[in-house]
Every structure is written in structure tokens, then in C-alpha cells.
């Protein structure tokens, strides 16, 4: 990447590349918190009320929202890269990408509705 003079003929690869890394950093910072919280609940270190106190505050909901947007964007770009590398038949690749995009967007909307529907 260092010293590259041109970004290639597609002209939009750098955007994906950059967003993939930006979202990676957001996920790397927030995902361990979510996973440790899950393990603490699994272990019985936190009961349901203590866990809800941590996640249903305004800050918890905001961080969770930030995490899910970064995570789903990161997942979309990552799976897109793999599909573009290995699925050469356009008639298969394009519907796959469409299904992936709509599927992840659907999960994102559901996920947001779960987070913001918790009674405060």
C-alpha cells in the first residue's frame, strides 16, 4: 500500500479497504467487552438484573449500536471479498452478494429494535 501511485481501474477499492480497517478497530475495541459480558453471565458472575443494568443504560445502548453497525459493515465487506475471490460466475456471485447485503441489513434492523425496545 505504501508508495502506491494509483488505486487501480475500479477506482473504488480503497474505500472498501479503508472502511474494512476502520470498522475492524471499532469492533476490536467493543467486541471483547460484549464477549466478556456474555461469559460473565454464562459463569453466573452476573445475574440477569446486573447484566441488564450494564446493557440497557443509554451508554450501553449507544455502544451496542455502534458495535453492530461496525460489525455488520465489517462482515459485509469481509464476506464480499471472499465471494469475489472464489465465486467467478457472475450469475451466482451477484445474487449471493444481494442476499448477503439484505440478510445482514435485516439482522441489523432486528438487532437495533431489540436494543432500543428494552424498558429502561
Amino acid at each position: 500500500m505504501l508508495g502506491a501511485e494509483r488505486y487501480g481501474t475500479a477506482h473504488n477499492g480503497l474505500g472498501d479497504w479503508y472502511v474494512q480497517r476502520l470498522t475492524a478497530i471499532v469492533v476490536a475495541l467493543l467486541m471483547p467487552l460484549a464477549y466478556l459480558l456474555l461469559l460473565a453471565v454464562y459463569n453466573g458472575a452476573l445475574d440477569q438484573m446486573q447484566m441488564l443494568d450494564l446493557v440497557d443504560g443509554y451508554i450501553g445502548r449507544m455502544l451496542h449500536t455502534l458495535l453492530l453497525i461496525a460489525l455488520l459493515t465489517h462482515a459485509y465487506l469481509g464476506v464480499k471479498l471472499i465471494v469475489e475471490d472464489y465465486v467467478h460466475m457472475a450469475a451466482l456471485r451477484i445474487p449471493m452478494m444481494g442476499a448477503l447485503l439484505i440478510g445482514l441489513a435485516g439482522f441489523g434492523i432486528w438487532w437495533l429494535s431489540v436494543i432500543w425496545a428494552w424498558a429502561a
Binding site: Q48, L71, L72, G78, V79, V114
Partner: peptide, 29 residues
């Protein structure tokens, strides 16, 4: 890295399943 990325992408629906259960009613929990 790619293989684990696919596994983690597939975990998204499972995570939602766990999240709705844990934050639902005490019975759901």
C-alpha cells in the same frame, strides 16, 4: 482469518438469539 471471519458472520443470528433470550423475561433468561 477468512475461515474464522465466515464463522463469526454466521454467529450473528446466534448472537441475536442469545441476546433476545438473555434480555427477555426471567423465564426466557
Amino acid at each position: 482469518h477468512r475461515a474464522t471471519g465466515i464463522i463469526l458472520a454466521l454467529f450473528v443470528p446466534v448472537y441475536l438469539f442469545i441476546l433476545t433470550g438473555l434480555t427477555g423475561s426471567p423465564d426466557d433468561f
